[in-house]
Amino acid sequence: MSALLEAKNIAYSVPERGSSVFGSRKKTVLQDVSLHVAERETLGIVGSSGSGKSTLSRILTGLIRPEKGKILFQGQDLRDANRQVRKDIRPSIQMIFQDPQGALDPRQTVRQIVKEPLHQMALSNDEKERRVLEALADVALPQDAADRYPRMFSGGQRQRIAIARALVTRPSVIVADEAVSALDVSTQAVVLNLLLDLQKRHGLSYIFVSHDLAVIRHISHRVAVLDEGKIVETGPTLSVMDHPQHAATQDLIDASL
């Protein structure tokens, strides 16, 4: 299986707290992180808070530029690619965020929210409109949802809107950062089912980032364990869970039950 999205030797650091504009010490967030996800595959990234998993997901989606290393999409280095190619590739990688409150602009209608990622794509307005309705149907939201505001929806429905926004560009990879962590048990189950359905229906790849081992175990084919900015263990989900090789993995397993 060839890699669809690949990260090679990613490093990232931030200025240490308390350092000034003049001369600053750096704190390492990620160190030599390499991973890949194949077509129709789910890679779970698990780690406790402060392990750097949020930063990693933002680097994978291009929101943050890594200090070292590169991101390859279908073998193509995004940094070397020219503007046009980048513009073409960008819609193929989408993201679902954690916070159901902060992920949707309260002053925009669902239609405006879901349409936003199509902004730079060369599509007619009719086509964009069609895509929006299609994405809403994909996540089983009623058509009349389009003209309502996020506050009129429950937490689970808001997360569906966020998923519809990620689907509207017909991406091949979706990075989900703690996408179900803030949801109730039943809503979590419904959203996880939806994500599994969508993967089958559209042949999606997921990079699923979470601190919750139970969620990662349920949805991932392969798992990478992130600890203090480094990947300490990676492999098929069940073999990592059943035969952890690293102390950090064992800690996470112990904590989850």
């Binding site: 048990v185 189950a189 996880l192 349920h218």
Partner: peptide, 21 residues
């Protein structure tokens, strides 16, 4: 029973399958 059946904690569902809701 419904809450427990949907929870991923404590109850084991076969991975990568729909959770019965």
């Amino acid at each position: 029973r419904a809450l427990l059946s949907m929870s991923l904690h404590g109850t084991s569902h076969p991975p990568l399958t729909r959770i019965p809701v």
